[in-house]
Design a protein around this nucleic acid. Structure first.
Length: 271
DNA sequence: ATCGCCTCCTGCGCGC
DNA sequence: TGCGCGCAGGAGGCGA
């Protein structure tokens, strides 16, 4: 479900409720997520103060004095801030309860998400270490992407969705960015000119920034921490719009399957 | 090294 | 109204 803008929206939503608060209790109702929630997580984190609420790629992590709680939302995860008055529902797997009684609650029907512990430097965690640069940071630029695309035989869409290359670009924003850059999603990554790679870098940054500004994209179930939808869905140019007219050229938007994921594009605008 | 396929899991919308 | 099917925003792990 959530791509970078939705994760960043969640991070910004929870941050003010958690910063400098002490964890008083952790209730785990379901250990079995993508990886098991560590049994000793409550022991490790209880009594600790949350110093920072950060994001790296699509991971959110709570920085404590003795380590980090790492949270990934997978396809269907969402975070809420609530109190004990809100009863936990079926897929509410873990509550992180603050000393001020506020609760950070993770719901994840499909259980593709995870909650993990990393005692030392977060960047040394085995899931974080191999990740490419953040798309909105300066390290991610035309030189970087052009150099890395060299000799790559995979499609440009698979390439920008590869987290070793750049993080945070998921299935929605890959289609959106390629449309804005005028690049056909099937094109081989290694065969795209530098000028067009620059367009793509700009398009990725622009797309993600606008989506963050709108509070993310709500297709069916993504909501911010108070349950509010993200408004970027209304600004999607191609994703989910197959059969509709291209906003630029009025031709029909097409959908096809790539790496078993839906891709949307305008055959007339994208080459 | 790189690529593409499979997999984990639940819910929803569609067609019959 | 009910059932079965296909599909869904991620991404690690595997075999080729």
């Amino acid at each position: 479900m959530p791509e970078l803008p939705e994760v960043e929206t969640s991070r910004r939503g929870i941050e003010p409720h958690l910063l400098n608060k002490t964890i008083s209790k952790i209730t785990i109702r379901q250990h079995k997520l993508r990886w098991p929630i560590p049994k000793n997580l409550p022991t490790l984190a209880t009594g600790q103060k949350i110093r920072e609420v950060c994001r790296r790629a699509k991971y959110i992590y709570l920085k404590l004095d003795n380590g980090n709680i790492i949270i990934h939302l997978g396809m269907s995860g969402s975070l809420r801030i609530c109190t004990s008055k809100t009863p936990a529902e079926k897929h509410d797997h873990i509550d992180i309860i603050m000393s001020n009684k506020k609760i950070l609650r993770l719901r994840d029907p499909r259980k593709f998400g995870c909650v993990l512990w990393q005692a030392s430097d977060i960047n040394e965690h085995k899931l974080i270490k191999p990740l490419g640069p953040e798309p909105l940071e300066n390290l991610f630029d035309t030189d970087y992407l052009h150099k890395n695309a060299k000799n790559r035989k995979c499609s440009i869409k698979a390439f920008i969705m590869n987290s070793h290359i750049v993080v945070g670009v998921g299935n929605i924003y890959a289609s959106e960015a390629l449309f804005r850059a005028g690049i056909n999603p099937k094109r081989q990554a290694g065969k795209i000119s530098r000028v067009r790679i620059k367009k793509l870098v700009d398009a990725i940054k622009l797309t993600l920034k606008s989506a963050i500004k709108e509070g993310g994209t709500t297709l069916r179930d993504f909501t911010g921490i108070s349950g509010q939808p993200g408004y970027f869905a209304q600004k999607l140019l191609v994703y989910g719009r197959d059969g509709e007219k291209c906003t630029v050229c009025n031709q029909t938007i097409k959908q096809f399957s790539q790496q078993a994921r839906s891709t949307f594009y305008c055959p007339n605008c994208q080459h």
